[in-house]
Every structure is written in structure tokens, then in C-alpha cells.
Computed example of a mutant assay.
Amino acid sequence: MNRHRTTETEEVDEVDEVAEGKAHRRRTVPALLLAAGLALTSGLAACGEAAEVRDPQTRTARDSRTVGLLLPDSTNRFAEFDRPLIERRVAELCPECDVEFASAQADVATQQRQLDAMITKGVRVIILDAVDSKSLSSSVDRARRAGIEVIAYDRLVEGPVSAYVSFDGERVGRLQGEALLRALGDEARDGQIVMMNGAATDPNSAWFKEGALAALEGKVTIGKAYDTAEWRPVNAHVNMAGAIASLGADEIDGVYSANDGLAAGIISALKAAKIHPLPPVTGQDAELAGIQRIVAGDQYMTVYKPFRLEANAAAEMAVALVRGGTPYGIATGTVDSPTTPDIPSVLLTPIAVTADTIEETVVKDGVYTVDQICTPRYADACERAGLTPPSPAP
């Protein structure tokens, strides 16, 4: 299924900075969806970069009611969903608890300082989405020795963590691979794709890749495969431009993209090369821009991970630990990290989203409204896709 060039000027999408992927190998198969209400609140709790770290022999007071929340960056997902959802659920379950928040802005050294600062302040529990799963191991160990429980959130950090909450990463990759094969149809057998994986330093990236390869290998030719440094869309753009130059613009029938941010970079490279029609491109995270690209026909699918369920599970585990309990009543299985076996875990079920299922997934769950998706730029595409705002109440 060859693609041809067009002489028309194509718009090159702006490539935004986007984050991450998710998870590590599971030992059991949990996938229990935790019930909870969607609620967004905002709060500010700055965590400074303290130079002095609490002596691990000086343990956190057992009556501390502070939950530390360390997220890797301030992209839309974390700013609009994870942070406010976690803060709201902690407040609902534990009115006497405080949440101390900091964003690492995708910098490992910054996150190390933030974690050390929380140890110094004597928080009781830290919910940690690590920028780098290996580099934070020593800080996680210091936290444990200071009597602070660490919950690995979204990405399994190394070190003595007490619990882990994420999505089934292998399932994410399988959903992406299976969707790409469906898009290729009968032409998959003789087709050729490019595989754009996430960062090699992220254990989630390897998990997604494993699931995708399980679906793709033997059913389509993988002409080029890349690990995308730092999950940066600009790096995906460069990689994709290289694949086009190497394979030929007419010889790329589909692209496996590990997430929506990489898809933005990939699609901008395809458009810059004047490839039309665009080959099917996968994604993950159900970002608003990704959903809009799906409506417009530029991106084929994404993977929706109900962040509310993930955030609620982490908050519930944190409150249980703050009150001296354990996460076992919330966990639905266990996982092993390279350093720690049998970590109580919740691994949730991801959901594939295409143009036909936007309304029954992200719109139904209140992630986005039709008005948010169907801005004037996408109005015609939304009409073709059957996405129309609800009629106003009489």
C-alpha cells in the first residue's frame, strides 16, 4: 500500500512537549477498575529544594499527616488530571491530611532534590512518578530509612517502594499494535511500518514495546524502529524524517507511535515530506490534541487510561499508609521491580479510542466535552465524525 506525494502545501503541526508512558512487568493479572467520582480541584503546595537532607536515623514522626506528591512534569495530563484528582481524593478520605506537591519539569536532578527536601520536611508518604526509574533509587532508599513510605505512581521506580499504581503496559502496547493491524487490513501482510518507541531509560517503554511486538511481529514488516530519547516529540520528528529518507515516502504504510506526543512529531514529519494520505499512526494518553488529530483523520487511534481510577487508587493507598495501615486491601496483585519483589499493586485496564469511540469513552467519562474537542478548526471534521454538542436544555 504505497503512499504518494502531493504538491499541495501541508500544514506542519506544532510539536508540543509531552510526557510519558507507564509500567513494569506484572506478576499477577489484576485489572480491577476502582470506582470513584471525577472531581478537579487545584491547590498550591510548593516543595523547595533543600540542601540538607534529614539523617535517615531521624525517622519521620508516625503522627505526620503530610502526603508528598512528586510528578515528573507539568504537562496537561499531570496538571489537569493526576494532581487535582489525587489532592481531591486525599482530602475526601483524610481531611486532616496535607498534600505537598512539586513538579520536576522533566529533570532528574530537580526531582532528586525535591524528594530529599520532602525527607527533610518529614512527610509521611510520598507518591512518586519518577522522571528516571533508576536514578531515584538511592533517594527512595533514604526515604524508607527515614520511615517514609513511597508509592510508585504510573512508573515503577527502583528501590524499596511500598506500593505501585499504574496501567497494564503490555495491554497498552497490544491495543496499539492490534489497532494498527486493523487499520492496515489485508495490506498488512505486504506492508511496512515504522516503530517509534518511547525512551530507552523508561521501563514502561519496554513494556509497551513488548505488547506491541506481540501483536505486530510476523504480521507486518517493521522497516525501522527507534527508541525516542526523553519521549520528546521533536526527537520523534527527527527519527521519522530519517525513516522517510531511508525507506522512501511511498514505502511507509503505518507508524506505531508509543504515545500522542510522539505522534505529533511523527505526523509533522510526514506532512513536511508531503506524504498524502497520511498512513495510520497510533498513540497513547488520549490528550486533547491527540483526540483532535483523530477527529481530523491525521492520527488513527490513541489509548485512553482513566486517570481518575489511577489517581484514586494512589490516594487511597497513601491515606491507608498515613494512618498506619497497609496497601494490601487496595492492591489487586503484586509486581517485581529489579530491586524489590512482591510490591502490592493496582494495574488498571487501558481502552483503545478511535474516531468511532470518542463519544463513548473520553466524552462520556467527562474527560473532555464535545465543545472542547470541536473548536472552530475541527468543526467540519467533528460534524463528519458525528460529534455534536448536546442541545441546550429548554
Rank of each mutant, 00 (worst) to 15 (best):
1 M>W: 12
3 R>E: 01
3 R>G: 00
4 H>Q: 11
4 H>D: 03
7 T>H: 07
12 V>K: 13
13 D>L: 13
13 D>Y: 10
14 E>P: 07
15 V>K: 14
24 H>G: 06
29 V>Q: 12
32 L>G: 14
35 A>D: 13
42 S>R: 15
44 L>R: 15
44 L>T: 15
51 A>R: 07
52 E>H: 09
54 R>C: 02
60 T>D: 01
63 D>L: 09
69 L>M: 14
71 L>F: 11
79 A>M: 11
80 E>V: 08
84 P>L: 14
84 P>R: 15
88 R>Q: 14
92 E>H: 04
93 L>F: 11
103 S>V: 07
104 A>K: 06
107 D>W: 05
108 V>T: 09
109 A>T: 10
111 Q>F: 04
117 A>K: 01
126 I>Y: 02
130 A>S: 15
131 V>L: 07
136 L>V: 11
141 D>Y: 00
148 I>Y: 02
150 V>R: 07
151 I>V: 12
162 S>E: 11
176 Q>F: 01
177 G>C: 02
178 E>C: 10
183 A>N: 10
184 L>C: 13
187 E>W: 10
188 A>T: 06
189 R>D: 10
191 G>F: 08
193 I>V: 14
196 M>L: 07
199 A>V: 01
200 A>Y: 02
204 N>W: 04
207 W>Q: 14
210 E>P: 01
214 A>Y: 05
220 V>Y: 03
221 T>N: 12
224 K>G: 02
227 D>N: 00
228 T>Q: 05
228 T>C: 06
231 W>K: 06
233 P>V: 02
235 N>H: 07
237 H>W: 12
241 A>T: 12
247 L>W: 06
247 L>V: 02
250 D>C: 05
250 D>M: 03
258 A>K: 09
259 N>R: 09
260 D>T: 00
261 G>W: 05
264 A>G: 12
269 A>K: 03
269 A>W: 01
272 A>E: 03
276 H>F: 12
281 V>A: 02
282 T>I: 03
282 T>G: 05
287 E>V: 12
289 A>K: 11
290 G>S: 11
292 Q>N: 14
297 G>H: 11
306 P>K: 15
309 L>P: 02
310 E>T: 07
312 N>Y: 14
314 A>C: 11
322 V>D: 14
323 R>Y: 04
323 R>P: 05
328 Y>E: 13
329 G>L: 05
329 G>D: 15
332 T>H: 06
339 T>M: 04
339 T>G: 02
342 D>R: 03
347 L>C: 14
354 T>M: 11
357 T>P: 09
360 E>S: 15
366 G>H: 02
366 G>S: 00
371 D>K: 13
373 I>L: 15
373 I>C: 12
376 P>M: 00
383 E>H: 08
389 P>E: 05
389 P>A: 11
390 P>R: 08
391 S>Y: 04
392 P>D: 05
394 P>H: 05
